[in-house]
Computed example of a mutant assay.
Amino acid sequence: MDESFGLLLESMPEAVVVVNREGEITYCNSKARRILGKDVVSLKVWEIEGLESGEKMRDFIKSLASGRYTKKREVFEFTAGRKIFYLSIYATELLDGSGFILTFRDITPIVESSRRIEELNDVLRLINKLLRHDILNKVTIARANIEILSDEIKSERIPVALEALDEVVELIERARAFEQTLTSGELVEIRLGDVVKEVAEDFSVRGLKVRVEGDATVLADKAIYSVLTNLLENSLKHGKSTEVEIRVEKRGNFAVMVVRDDGKGLPEEVIDRIFEEGFTHGDSAGSGLGLYIVKKVIERYGGEVRACNDGGAVFEIKLKLAT
């Protein structure tokens, strides 16, 4: 190895190892020796003591040598003494094609933090699930008893109490939808037409007529149902709509879903704020989470949502087409 090249690798802040195309270590800088051990030169890189998943490393090197590996980055677990390290390894081919420079970066704090966050999320999801279950049970009991009392006691306060309990149930459902929005997993192929028809059926029994035109398969997950449910709920409750038209069409690499109702429209003075967290307006204001959830879900899909008035309220949602 050229001396000036060796000095350059030695001065690098990361641990650096050079291997030939067969995976044999031909050089490692001092930082690499502190992590991997002093006597690793001439070993195959997958033979390094403490390296877990040696077969994974062997496949990594073989893929690099064959030119089949395009990502050129992998994460490996490495044990030194009683401590476990997680090393992100990035490969760069030598200019003469004789081998590869492997740059090791310790990402242990990142991996451990991610695991702690996921563990805390699991606990929070369980707590929220239990709370929702228990609260809904109590609300159901309270509502049933109030309805029974309404047969015996005539009071204008009873409908107010029943409405408040219904709002508690709605808040719990909103919280469930928001949790789903933040914790949903991998995006999959979903037909918008199927989602629209299923959600529309739930609203048809409440007197909202939904007309559907067009279809497209997009990248989304189950939270897409909460998006459409929130929009139709707003049309029915806040817009006082009786009919909604949902049109789906393809534009380039995107599907555009336009939801248009025949209601009273969105207040022009607040139309720019309706997607803000907790924003409410008017006598029929809810929790202020519905449209915020819509925006967050669509953004997580890599899409966009906007709103305007054209007779009634119009929501335009752009989603990535599945390929």
Rank of each mutant, 00 (worst) to 15 (best):
R58T: 05
A322V: 03
V169R: 13
E277H: 03
T103G: 01
L171S: 12
R125S: 15
V169F: 00
E152N: 10
R191M: 00
T26V: 15
E173V: 00
N29V: 07
E77N: 02
S241Q: 07
I293C: 02
E173L: 10
Y27R: 06
G207V: 04
I146K: 02
Y86W: 15
S114M: 14
K44G: 05
L8K: 07
L94D: 07
S284D: 14
A91T: 06
T183R: 04
E186G: 02
V195E: 01
S30D: 14
G239V: 00
D283H: 12
V139P: 08
G239R: 12
D59N: 13
K71L: 12
A220S: 11
G303A: 09
S98Q: 06
V256Q: 04
F254A: 06
L95P: 01
P159F: 04
V210P: 06
E201Q: 08
G263Q: 04
D262P: 11
S226C: 02
K62R: 14
V195L: 03
I135D: 03
E3N: 12
D221F: 01
T181F: 02
C28E: 09
V248G: 02
L95A: 14
K197Q: 09
L228H: 01
G214T: 04
A142V: 12
K197T: 05
K250G: 01
K83Y: 12
A216P: 00
E74A: 14
L162K: 08
R143Y: 06
T108A: 04
R105C: 07
H238Q: 07
I298Y: 02
R211M: 06
G67W: 08
K209T: 11
K154R: 15
Q180M: 14
D59A: 13
N234Q: 07
A144N: 14
T140D: 13
R68Y: 00
G263N: 04
A15T: 09
V195T: 05
V16Q: 13
A144P: 00
D215A: 06
T181N: 04
S4I: 12
I84E: 09
S11G: 13
V258E: 11
L126C: 08
D283T: 12
Y292K: 04
N29I: 06
E119A: 15
S42C: 00
D106M: 10
A285L: 03
V297C: 05
V297P: 03
F104G: 10
A223V: 03
F100N: 05
L192Q: 02
L9P: 01
E163N: 13
E299D: 13
S53E: 15
S226V: 03
S114P: 08
L126P: 00
T229D: 10
G67N: 11
E118Q: 12
F275R: 05
I148L: 14
E304S: 05
A322L: 05
K62Y: 04
E233Y: 11
I246Y: 03
E276K: 12
K250E: 13
A164Y: 11
L171K: 10
M12K: 01
V205F: 05
F254V: 01
D283Q: 13
S63N: 15
I172K: 00
S241H: 06
T183S: 11
L228G: 01
F275M: 05
R247W: 02
I146G: 03
I246V: 15
P109Q: 10
A65D: 09
R273A: 09
F60C: 07
L136K: 14
K71S: 13
K31N: 14
K154M: 07
H133Y: 13
N309V: 10
S184N: 10
K56S: 11
L131F: 14
